[in-house]
């Protein structure tokens, strides 16, 4: 016999290191030969899309396309530190540092353009498709390329830094506001529990994630799918057997992670509610995308068969034992 149920899981997640710990990102922006823009920043790409998102934030701030930017990263001899690619902090923290650096670079470019265009002031200057333009008299304009030729013996660059604002919790009471900003999400699933085998099958999943602003919706969906799959694994399959600190099942044949056949199509919903301290409103979502999935699945199992599971993973053996115990107790 198979029984169906639905369940919902909700979470809110504090991004960044939090709890008053210094959380600092830095970036340098430099005008390169040919008028290209170099962003030197210790942001680390591990597949989550940081490189793409950081280039997008730089391009937006400097009025150029993504193709006009070279991101030089992951080499500590060439760039300032931007902290770890952890704590769901790169989009918010390092994105802010890049935005500040690019804003400072605007001023540097305006100063040079003022001289070359013979202007009284930098007021009214704007950046447009790789050029500095006087907005009320657009015939007055000079390209980044031309500036790079004129100032080829001088480095035109600007720095940017962002220090996240967090406060320490009261060590006695554990009370306080350790994180800022928070991100929110919700997941609903429908499951089918096989009462004879203890196997839990997912039938449907809807997943909504607050991102502040989706810098790249495509990559964001990828993170949501990935977080869902990873959480599906730890909820239903992944059972790390430790004995005296040694992992006994350190093989993919003994430690099961989801394959494409275990995963289902997830209906992803991106919620955009811009955070006013964030770069263009964007917050990180890397870790929180895993959090509401297990509660949703466990609630759905409860809804289906009336049994509360309090230990992960819900392997078929464990679920069968719980089903038998419930039968005996009734």
């Amino acid at each position: 016999m198979k029984k169906r149920g639905i369940g919902v899981g909700l979470s809110f997640y504090g991004t960044g290191y939090g709890n008053g710990f210094p959380d600092i990102s830095r970036a340098i922006v430099r005008l390169l030969p040919g008028g290209r823009i170099g962003i030197y920043c210790g942001v680390t790409e591990v597949g989550q899309g940081a490189k793409t998102a950081m280039i997008q934030i730089g391009a937006e701030t400097l009025g150029v396309t993504e193709k006009d930017i070279d991101l030089i990263h992951e080499d500590t001899s060439l760039m300032p530190d931007s902290g770890t690619a952890a704590a769901t902090r790169q989009t918010y923290n390092t994105g802010n540092a890049i935005k500040v650096a690019c804003q400072n670079m605007r001023e540097k470019l305006f100063e040079k353009a003022k001289v070359e265009l013979g202007l009284n002031s930098t007021a009214g200057l704007a950046l447009e498709k790789g050029e500095v333009v006087l907005s009320f008299f657009p015939q007055k304009r000079i390209s980044f390329k031309r500036l790079s030729e004129i100032y080829k013996d001088e480095t035109i660059e600007a720095e940017g830094e962002f220090v996240a604002q967090t406060t320490t919790m009261d060590p006695d009471t554990g009370q306080g506001a350790p994180y800022w900003p928070y991100t929110f999400n919700a997941c609903a699933v429908e499951v089918e529990v096989d009462m004879n085998t203890g196997i839990v099958n997912l039938l449907r999943a809807v997943f909504a994630q607050d991102a502040g602003r989706a810098v790249n919706p495509h990559l964001l969906e990828g993170q949501m799918d990935g977080g869902f799959a990873m959480a599906l694994g730890y909820t239903l399959f992944e059972d790390l057997k430790l004995e005296n600190g040694v992992i006994k099942n350190n093989r993919f044949s003994k430690y099961l992670i989801p394959t494409a056949m275990d995963m289902i199509d997830v209906e992803n919903i991106i919620i955009e509610d811009p955070e006013n301290t964030a770069p263009y409103g964007a917050k990180g979502i890397g870790e929180p995308v895993m959090i509401p999935i297990a509660p949703a699945i466990l609630n759905a199992i409860y809804n289906a068969i009336g049994i509360r599971i309090t230990e992960l993973p819900v392997t078929p053996e464990k679920l069968m034992k719980a089903i038998r115990e419930a039968e005996v107790n009734n």
Partner: peptide, 8 residues
């Protein structure tokens, strides 16, 4: 096996 993408 893929740990990142969720395969979708």
């Amino acid at each position: 096996l893929c740990r990142c993408t969720g395969y979708n």
